[in-house]
């Protein structure tokens, strides 16, 4: 046996691990590949049968022109759905970041009664799946929803954003608390003594130092809003990409499946792009406790 450093695994072990990871992820990768492939095909590519693939851009053209199902002939405005999805996603992202950053700072810096219990309570909130809470959330929705029908659409957007964001906030608060905990008190004090006001300290010293954390919760918030189906489906007065796809799947007999595949691909895009571009950032997040 040759000598090696502690962290270095044997080549053979490494190959086995790599193979195991590939095998474990292959169903997901194959599934996504088939959807993307089908979106460029006349009929769905299924059962690993390459003969069912006939290249066409028709699906994408139809999709962007707003034709939904060839059979139903219903006009569906996909661009509007995409916009709706983006509004919800950005809204969630913004609310999560604002609340997460500020409460993370407060919890990290302020020493108040029952602080520890409060932190544990937040964690407990995070443990509840959103779908479990939906009855209660719907009840509040009914209580709050305006009587005037004209404003219900606007209200539903606000409501979905706030409700969905509140599911993400516990995690964001914990993450940001961790980032602020890493900044020593002395750095803040140094700035105060250098002549900065509390607000200037926050803006010029604290925020730049927690940038990776802010970027991470912005991203997580956006993806949470973008991916959400159940809250959007329950509360939003309009369709998003998720509900559009779900609606089409509900009418499977009539739905033009390659078109749905194209919509699904469009829906997947931000997730893929974000994860590829922000890999470095997300790695940093997971290391936040150890390294700065």
């Amino acid at each position: 046996m040759s000598l090696r450093d502690v962290e270095v695994r044997a080549r053979k072990t490494e190959a086995i691990i790599a193979l195991a990871i590939i095998l474990a992820t292959s169903p997901i990768i194959i599934g996504f590949s088939l959807i993307i492939l089908s979106s460029f095909s006349k009929s769905m590519v299924t059962n690993f049968d390459p003969s069912s693939f006939h290249l066409t851009l028709e699906n994408w053209i139809n999709l962007l022109q707003g034709k939904s199902a060839a059979v139903g002939g219903l006009k569906e405005n996909i661009l509007k759905y995409t916009l709706n999805t983006a509004v919800v996603a950005l809204g969630v992202s913004l609310v999560v970041t604002l609340v997460g950053t500020m409460s993370g700072y407060a919890i990290s810096r302020m020493n108040f009664r029952y602080r520890k219990h409060f932190l544990l309570l937040i964690l407990l909130l995070h443990a509840f799946p959103g779908s479990v809470l939906i009855v209660g959330v719907y009840f509040i929705y009914r209580l709050m929803s305006p009587i005037a029908m004209g404003s219900i659409t606007t209200f539903s957007f606000f409501y979905v954003i706030i409700a969905r964001a509140s599911l993400e906030i516990p995690m964001a608060v914990w993450l940001m608390k961790g980032f602020f905990d890493l900044i020593p008190w002395e750095v803040e004090w140094a700035a105060l003594i250098d002549g900065a006001s509390r607000l200037t300290v926050w803006r010029k010293v604290m925020l730049p130092l927690v940038k990776p954390g802010i970027a991470a919760i912005l991203l997580f918030g956006f993806l949470a809003g973008w991916q959400d189906l159940i809250y959007v489906r329950t509360f939003l007065a309009e369709k998003t990409l998720a509900t559009f796809i779900e609606y089409n799947l509900g009418t499977l007999e009539f739905a033009e499946m390659p078109l749905v595949a194209a919509a699904a691909t469009l829906y997947l895009l931000p997730t893929i792009i974000f994860f590829i571009t922000s890999q470095q950032l997300l790695l940093k997040v997971s290391l936040a406790g150890l390294k700065r």
Partner: peptide, 12 residues
């Protein structure tokens, strides 16, 4: 002017 034990420079 205050010099801290850990110097508290602004890392960014």
């Amino acid at each position: 002017g205050l010099v801290f034990q850990n110097w508290a420079l602004y890392p960014h």
